[in-house]
Amino acid sequence: MEKSINLTLKVWRQASPTAKGKFETYSLKNISTDASFLEMMDILNEQLVKEHKEPVAFDHDCREGICGMCSLYINGHPHGPDGEITTCQLHMRNFHDGQTITIEPWRSAAFPVIKDLVVDRGAFDKIIQAGGFVSVNTGGVPDGNAIPIPKDKADEAMDAASCIGCGACVAACKNGSAMLFLSAKVSQLALLPQGKVEAARRAKAMVAKMDELGFGNCTNTGACEAECPKNVSLSNIARLNREFLKAKFKD
């Protein structure tokens, strides 16, 4: 049932990439528990604008958990305390009256802060650009049903492909590793006959790019899987390692 709660927010404010950041404290009254977390942030910003102060910058767009734009490290968890969802789908019924909520940006060497809670995740795009595709041009491809794909393989590929590229896995990892993100793409394409052809080349190119961009190594703590809003499985990392080793043996 809907009710209202009062909150204290400790929000990371940082004017620019090079500026020194710090926490600011704000108090919010009468927040409906049916509001989403980002609607709560909207209310905070409305309040700040009314006081002629600069609102808190944070990334968000679709607000239905699929674009991967929203981030936020909430009380020590990427995307907050509720499981299997992004920040935009987190609702205030997960918090209690009088609670203090600490809100930080993703913290990772590979994701520098742009402003306040906004970070630059361009490194993820660069990993995909290094090999996260099937090398086909538009046109001249065979009929969609020309190559049958076993349903379980297609389903498994779909599960890996459900990654939204939000970066929670990197934010959750003490090493700042992008292995879950990278392995999800490598797995999706390696599982399908269309992507199998260049699987080895893909794995090597993407791993090399990841290392170059300053992401850390994977030490199998599993924090990425636990915090992933889309339940992308750790088994993808095992598959990536297999593909990577196969590629290395071939060299």
């Binding site: 595709f133 099937v134 086909v136 538009t138 046109g139 491809v141 065979p142 009929d143 969609g144 049903n145 049958p148 794909i149 076993p150 349903k151 297609a154 389903d155 590929a157 779909m158 492909a161 999706q188 394409l189 399908l192 269309q194 992507g195």
Partner: peptide
């Protein structure tokens, strides 16, 4: 479009026989 997307590795839903 369907052919193009399949070639790119879009994991469309499939039947048990492996077809779309």
């Amino acid at each position: 479009i369907i052919d193009q997307c399949v070639a790119q590795g879009v994991p469309f839903a499939r039947e048990y026989g492996g077809l779309l």
